[in-house]
Amino acid sequence: MNQTKYQPEAAGNGKTPIVLQMQGVSKIIKGKAIVNELSFDICKGEIVGLLGPNGAGKTTTIRMMTGLIRMTEGDVLIEGHSIRNDFNKAIANIGAIIENPEFYSHMTGYDNLKQYQRMSDGITDDRMDEVVRLVGLQEAMGKKVKAYSLGMRQRLGIAQALLHSPKLLILDEPTNGLDPAGIREMRDYMRRIAEVEGISILISSHMLAEIEQICHRAVVIQNGKLIAVTPLGEEAQAGGAIPLAIRVGKLEAALVVIHKQSEVQIIRTDEANSEILVSMPDDQVPELIAAFSEAGVRVYRIMDNKQSLEEEFLKWTGGNRIA
């Protein structure tokens, strides 16, 4: 809530070009703000997670970005083009899957993709083949979509989103309804796409682990309002404090040691597992371990604290409303 609060200049860090700008976007239905003055940016090549509990306004936000829903106030700029006033130019830079990918099931995958080829300018047949290869659907293109599994439809969804070489890929709950293997496959695709195509990706989800694993940054919203923008993964740790969970023999003795280390912050102690959750700079870890052994504190495990995003998320959103 504090240092992660959105600041316009913090998002762009000056050098990286901005692909998408949300400028105070609101959606008001019958006097109720579904989305309330939402502003954030997405830079080139960045993977951003849009996080929030169910009903936070994630889908509404994405539908406004793609012009499916009109915004009451504000504007969305994509590569500098307004989605309100210059829709065709703005949307040409976006590829999206909104909720489940739905196709014309009586037609083949190829016929479906052809539909979207005809609706954009300058997509060659070579480009179509390339996209089909990227998502690995070569064998299935001649089959009717009604015979596709959900995983195959997701892949065809990605293919239609990438067809016109967009600058920004928007995925709304991309792993909804997929089994663990499908989720993993999806994740691999997204990484490959980000690398191969070099485009920015916005992923909306309420599944924290998913976001944490692939996103560079998370935008957290609740009740339509921006709550936090937080860096994730390696970016979060670069130079900053890292969260660790340390399982020790005696909690009290360990806490005494930790209190002496000025740069180690205690997040909380977990007495049931005899664990201490701390946040500390990377280079201080060896020192802490040395201090533990000096004081005779038995250390059983030192782990990356994977729970951190979830805990922060619960803190931000008040805890009880996660889906």
């Binding site: 793609t66 949307i91 909720e99 489940n100 990918p101 739905e102 609706m119």
Partner: peptide, 14 residues
């Protein structure tokens, strides 16, 4: 009813 309206309307066509 098929939900294809979403893909239809997010193209560079009015």
């Amino acid at each position: 009813s098929q939900g294809t309206i979403k893909f239809l309307l997010i193209r560079a066509r009015s």
